[in-house]
Amino acid sequence: MSGDIIGIWIGAILTLGIFSFLYKDNPFYKFSEALFVGISAGYWFVVTFWQYFVPKFWDNLSLSFHELVANGRIDYHWIYLVGGFFGVLMLLRLVPKIGWLSRWSLAFIVGTTAGLQFTRYLESNGIRQVVGTIKPLVVGGNLGTSIGNIIIVVGTFTGLIYFFFSKEHKGAFGGAARVGVWFLMINFGAMFGYTVMSRMSLLIGRMDYLFSDWLKLIK
């Protein structure tokens, strides 16, 4: 119980330390920031160690090592050595003479991720968006939906024109691009307005912590 109270006091003081940044940079903030960075970097390292390194690398290799010693069998878990190999190459950056070998690891990470994202982008940002935008321009008996659909097609069309890079935005083409910008601004405004409320609720959550958990002014 008393541990809890100390915890809440520490939390409250650090909260005020962070909020004090709104006034200006000060030792109180610097202290909170330095502690935050140290604790978070340590936390991240430990968590990746236990949650990824041990189960994915260590456990798999010890399994195959055990299999080799006990039954003289080479099982498929040795394949995780490939990851270890690239990992060690990565660490070779610390040795200037052979540091260039770390490029192999970078190539592996960047190459596989790029290949993976190629199809992912094509699906989610390409084809799915096209399917979502193809709408009937005229919906019988429903003027509202018809106008809405026409606006969606026009908005997407002019928005795409804005993103044209190999043609100068002049004349009618430039005009269409300008209409595209208006649509973009509506999108930005809508996203902005949409987020304001959720940000406010975060602040209210913090105030609640200070005034009810810590100061107990609000029950």
């Binding site: 390409g126 096209v130 193809i134 709408k135 321009l137 097609v153 069309f157 795409l160 044209f164 890079f165």
Partner: peptide
């Protein structure tokens, strides 16, 4: 990329007219 956009725009227009 721009040619990709042109193809998308053509598909949008033809698709929308066909869907109508």
């Amino acid at each position: 990329q721009d040619w990709g956009k042109i193809l998308i725009m053509i598909s949008l227009i033809i698709g929308a007219i066909a869907a109508s």
